[in-house]
Simulated assay, not measured.
Amino acid sequence: MRILAALAVLAGLLAGTSPAAAQNRFWLQNNTGQAIVAANVSPSRVQDWGPNILSRGPVGPGMQVWVEPTFADCYLDIRVRFADGTEDGHLGVHACTLTRIVFGPDVSAPTPAPAPPPPRQAEAPNPSFTFVNRTGEPIREIYVSLTSERNWGRDRLGARQILPSGAAMPITLPRTGVCTADMRIVFMDGRIMEQRNVETCSIREYVWR
């Protein structure tokens, strides 16, 4: 009697590992733009791909086919071949925990949120300003440079130009983080006047009197 009972238990165990009891069945979904003309499914533990499982023909774009492996393994390797001859595959898929294996974009998966934009760098203050001549006489040369520079640079008026008294002109300076400027003016008779370390980032115009 004990022998018969043991045989019955063994038979039950063998039945539990039969293909009919396997939980590795799934839908093979084609979400690509071309037909799948062949598909192979094999246990991950073996190297042989086995036969083409598409006995009813190709799986067109957007279509799916029900796959019932003839073995009970949960970890599967799946390979497909498309109409243009290219191949794709999923290796080591735990088929016992899912019902669908997708080739192409999985439209059922939530779309990941876009990455946040990089933080915007703070813009350096603007040292540019408008120069106003209130000296009572014309100016023939104007030089303005940031205090970080080692030379006066070019004449802002240019050759054969003057700035009459009461007139104004824009002075453009680079945004380097420096907000102080040195200024030099030359009058018609050659006299020179200078202003040093003038803070210009907080003003719109500078009046020279």
Results as ranks from 00 to 15, higher is better:
Phe129Met: 01
Gly12Ala: 15
Leu54Cys: 00
Gln34Lys: 14
Ala6Gln: 06
Glu87His: 03
Arg120His: 10
Glu194Arg: 13
Pro127His: 06
Leu146Glu: 02
Gly33Tyr: 01
Pro112His: 10
Pro116Cys: 01
Pro127Arg: 05
Pro164Glu: 09
Phe187Val: 08
Leu13Tyr: 13
Gly50Ser: 02
Arg120Phe: 10
Gly104Asn: 02
Pro119Glu: 10
Val107Lys: 12
Ile162Gly: 00
Gly12Leu: 14
Arg45Gln: 11
Pro43Ala: 11
Leu98Phe: 11
Val178Ile: 11
Asn151Phe: 09
Asp182His: 07
Leu4Met: 13
Trp27Arg: 06
Arg100Val: 08
Arg150Lys: 11
Tyr143Ile: 02
Asn151Val: 10
Ile162Arg: 11
Met188Gly: 09
Pro117Leu: 06
Phe82Lys: 02
Glu205Arg: 15
Pro110Lys: 05
Asn197Phe: 11
Ala72Pro: 07
Gly166Trp: 03
Phe131Cys: 10
Arg100Ala: 05
Ala181Val: 15
Pro174Val: 08
Phe131Thr: 12
Glu199Met: 07
Arg2Val: 14
Pro116Ala: 04
Pro174Leu: 03
Leu13Met: 15
Asn31Ser: 14
Ile139Cys: 07
Glu205Val: 04
Arg81Ala: 14
Gln34Trp: 02
Leu28Glu: 01
Arg140Ser: 12
Ala15His: 15
Leu98Ser: 13
Val107Cys: 02
Asn197Gln: 14
Arg2Asp: 14
Val102Trp: 00
Ile36Cys: 01
Pro174Ala: 05
Ile203Glu: 00
Phe71Cys: 07
Thr99Ala: 12
Ile142Asn: 06
Val37Lys: 07
Ala5Ser: 12
Thr172Phe: 08
Val186Tyr: 05
Cys201Ala: 07
Asp73Val: 08
Pro110Val: 08
Ile142Phe: 02
Ala39Trp: 00
Arg154Gln: 14
Ala167Gly: 05
Glu199Phe: 07
Arg120Gly: 13
Leu10Tyr: 07
Leu91Ile: 12
